[in-house]
C-alpha cells in the first residue's frame, strides 16, 4: 500500500510554481493600489448603493484571478421595497 502510494503520488512543485506565477502576476500589476478588479468591485457597489439600500449580508462578491482573464461576479438580492429604503 505504501509502495503504491509512493508511486502514484503526484508531484506538488508544479502546482506551487503555477500558483505563484498567477498570484505574482496579479500582485505586481496591482502594486501602487491600481488593481482594476478591486476598483471595479468598489465602484459597482457604490453605484448600486446610490439607488437602493444594500444589505451587506445580501451581497456576494466573488473574484477569480486566472492567468489570462479574471472574473468578477457581483450577486445582490434586491428586495421589493428597495427603492423606498434608499
Amino acid at each position: 500500500m505504501n509502495l503504491f502510494r509512493f508511486f502514484s503520488r503526484t508531484q506538488s512543485a508544479p502546482a506551487a510554481r503555477e500558483r505563484l506565477q498567477v498570484l505574482l502576476a496579479h500582485e505586481r500589476a496591482s502594486a501602487g493600489d491600481s488593481d482594476l478588479v478591486t476598483k471595479l468591485r468598489d465602484e459597482i457597489l457604490q453605484a448600486i448603493s446610490k439607488h437602493m439600500q444594500i444589505d451587506d449580508d445580501k451581497v456576494r462578491v466573488t473574484m477569480e484571478r486566472g492567468p489570462q482573464v479574471s472574473t468578477l461576479a457581483v450577486d445582490i438580492e434586491i428586495p421589493f421595497d428597495a427603492k423606498k429604503a434608499a
Binding site: 508531484q11 506538488s12 512543485a13 508544479p14 506551487a16 510554481r17 505563484l20 506565477q21 505574482l24
Partner: peptide, 16 residues
C-alpha cells in the same frame, strides 16, 4: 525533494 518534484527547483524560483 526538488528532484522528486515536491520542492520548487532552483530554476523555478529564478524564473519567478
Amino acid at each position: 525533494r526538488a528532484e522528486r518534484g515536491d520542492m520548487l527547483k532552483v530554476d523555478d524560483v529564478l524564473e519567478i
